[in-house]
Computed example of a mutant assay.
Amino acid sequence: MIPATHSEIEQIYLAAEMSQSRALCITACQSGDGVTSVTTALAERYLLAGLKTLIVDLNTFHPAFESAGLNLGASLSKEETECGILLEHKESHQLFTGLVVPREQSELLSFRDPTQLSMNVTSWLEHFDRIICDTSPLLQVNRSNIPAQVVASACDHTILVVMGGKTTSGQLAKATEMLTNSSIQLLGSVLNLKQQATLGQEMVREINRFTFLPKRWRERLTQKILRNELLAHSA
């Protein structure tokens, strides 16, 4: 999980506030790129600022939240739909006020409609200061997904999370093209370097390929490289 006080989260928070964004859509090219981590960290940052925040989990591909103390299959009352319920992040067990992914096909259809979803966001903003929507991946589409671009069009701004060392330039170009619409405002992109090796690690990997060098020499070089602060940055 990303700490809410992380400097990069602070930059996202400031960018959103300076853009007067009340409803944010967080999306990515593929599943596992870090959308939920950014969502929870930013939600925490909003809460630390004293802003009443609602997380809307619209990721039908791989939902990261579940209702705390309420059956996911149960239908919500009108008040719960408007004001949210208590959500629990499945991995960290953090609790947030939010809405779970709809399970009924009729509800999914309404969420896929840009006009209806925009009306829902407007209704939620009557009860909350900030809204963050966690979406399905842009490039992983199936019949049960709520398209990320539809969610993006209903929000004030969109943030695209990119996984360093995993997302290809072709995938990024396609995702950016899908977000190219007059109704979608891209606030910026977040480069997730969690899985990307540092320059020092890349050098060590290459050194270990030189099997003609004595193992003791390679180990000494490896230790010096990994201790070098200049080589601790991502390649």
Rank of each mutant, 00 (worst) to 15 (best):
T97W: 04
T122A: 13
T168K: 07
R112G: 07
S118E: 13
A197T: 09
I207K: 00
S92L: 12
V101W: 00
C155V: 05
P102E: 06
R218G: 07
G188D: 09
A41Q: 02
N142F: 05
E82P: 04
I225H: 01
L230H: 13
L108F: 01
T97E: 12
L70I: 14
E17Y: 11
A235E: 12
P214S: 10
G84Q: 02
I2H: 02
L139V: 01
G188Y: 05
E219Q: 06
T81C: 08
E107L: 09
L230G: 11
S183Q: 14
A154C: 10
D113R: 08
D129M: 10
S169I: 13
L42S: 04
L186V: 10
A175L: 00
T39V: 10
S189I: 08
L193K: 11
T222C: 08
I55N: 04
A15C: 06
L95Q: 15
K194F: 14
S92E: 07
H233M: 04
F212M: 11
C155M: 09
W217P: 01
R216N: 13
E82V: 08
E104F: 11
V38R: 00
V204S: 03
F65L: 04
C155T: 06
V141Q: 12
G50I: 03
S37D: 14
T122W: 06
S31L: 09
K52F: 15
S136P: 04
I159K: 00
G170E: 15
K194I: 12
A15H: 02
L24T: 06
S153I: 12
L95W: 08
G200K: 01
D156W: 05
L42C: 04
F61R: 03
L117S: 07
Q20A: 13
V150E: 06
S136E: 02
E91V: 14
E107R: 11
A41W: 00
L14F: 08
N142A: 05
L172Q: 04
K166W: 11
P63A: 02
L108W: 06
R218K: 12
K52V: 10
L226V: 02
I26K: 01
R209Y: 03
Q140W: 01
G84K: 03
R209P: 11
K224H: 10
E88M: 15
H89G: 06
T36G: 01
L125K: 03
F111A: 11
L221V: 07
L87I: 07
A154P: 10
C25T: 13
S169P: 07
H93K: 15
E177S: 14
V141R: 02
